[in-house]
Design a protein around this nucleic acid. Structure first.
Lengths: 222, 222
DNA sequence: ACGGAGGCTGAGAGGAACCTGAAGCCCCCT
DNA sequence: AGGGGGCTTCAGGTTCCTCTCAGCCTCCGT
């Protein structure tokens, strides 16, 4: 699951990003409205957290522009102090929910999860992916291999999720890096190999195939 | 963007229609093959999602009839269970892509978007290319010759991909060099010959024809 | 028939890509 | 404060690609 945070208070943005990353989401952060609209327009995010007071374009405008362009990504608005937020205007422009600062981190996470859950159900989507004896429940974040439940860490699950979402296709290491880690990740790209390695140990060797020079592919049929 | 869903399982059809509508597409649904062909023939749709098992006319027939009538709307085929779908037949009749039930909603949307994007780019290309008994799946990076899967290295695959993308046309060695190797490749241009040579050995001699002084051409008809 | 240009291909050195065990760090929980 | 779990880095080892080279073949014009 990929989240975009559009927030100009850098300390707050960083703290949110850190916490949500720990929850297992891939989080990107931008600091002004125009850039936020641009990123969100790519359509690769599952949810956008949008501050109202922003340089460039304010949150209402960003939200309205996204909706006008046909994007229906869930949008959670943040407002600086009680009363600033015009609820009617916010929800009219197409926001799905809002939070008034200061809010607790726990509440934020709960709202994010609720929005993502609602989206999943509303679309009639099955969050459960089955390939052979592998079953991945993206809503519950649980993985089963035959009868047995496999316990995965947040990062392990996210990597597996990327592969499952595009089962049968080759997913490159850089794509996995961008989706699971930040798009501006500076670390050793070898980290993807490390996680694939542990996934193979926890699941079953042969389930994740290396396509040398291209990436990894989740096998769909035995 | 207008989509047509031709699917007789009404619950599935409704769920897909709901989800795709939420994605911002205009969706029409019909429940039998004859009606589907009639609607699709109007030529006002940007993409058709076509079940194979249908009352009236089955999906293959609808697809073939549309192509015979000169429509080149992207077609995404759905198949009820693994094995039912004869890939060669489906792709031969002109489908652009296919999905095996059960599939996740996320994957469906991804495929729909990919097909529309591709169409938008004008490439009109599908991830799966079939020429005679050669099948090249560019998304999975897999190659089949008849029943057998052929294992190719990264470079081998890339060279074959270039030829497949322009099947029937002559592709010059320098074009292959520029696309597969770096634009500023400084090595021996003979490298292309080396790879064509191994491709012929791994696939079948005669599949890749040398056009002396011009380049190579992938044979389209046996 | 001959020569030359263009094309083919086997072999091998070198190295890129990948895997994985070990260890350090950091955060959170007890 | 201590301990544990998860995340990340690092380095050694392994696999197997890639590219070069050289000799040979094929085609075509003279």
């Amino acid at each position: 699951m990929r989240l975009l945070i559009v927030e100009d208070e850098k300390r707050l943005a960083l703290s949110l990003a850190g916490g949500l990353t720990a929850e297992g989401y891939a989080v990107d952060v931008v600091h002004d409205g125009r850039e936020g609209l641009h990123q969100a327009s790519e359509g690769t995010y599952d949810l956008v957290i949008l501050d109202i007071m922003l340089p460039g374009l304010n949150g209402y405008r960003v939200c309205a522009a996204l909706r006008a362009a046909g994007h229906d990504v869930p949008i959670l608005m943040l407002t600086a102090k009680d009363g600033e937020f015009d609820e009617a205007e916010g929800l009219d422009t197409g926001a799905d929910d809002y939070l008034t600062k200061p809010f607790s981190y726990v509440v934020l996470v709960a709202r994010v999860k609720a929005l993502l859950r609602r989206r999943g159900q509303g679309a009639g989507a099955s969050p459960v992916h089955v390939h052979g004896d592998l079953k991945v429940d993206t809503a519950a974040r649980r993985v089963f291999l035959g009868e047995d439940e496999i316990t995965l860490t947040a990062k392990e699950f996210s990597v597996l999720e990327q592969l499952v979402l595009r089962a049968g296709e080759v997913v490159s290491k850089s794509e996995i890096l961008e989706h699971v880690w930040d798009f501006a990740y500076e670390g050793d790209p070898n980290i993807v190999e490390v996680y694939v390695s542990t996934l193979r140990r926890k699941l079953r060797a042969g389930l994740i195939r290396t396509v040398r020079g291209a990436g990894y592919r989740l096998e769909t049929s035995p």
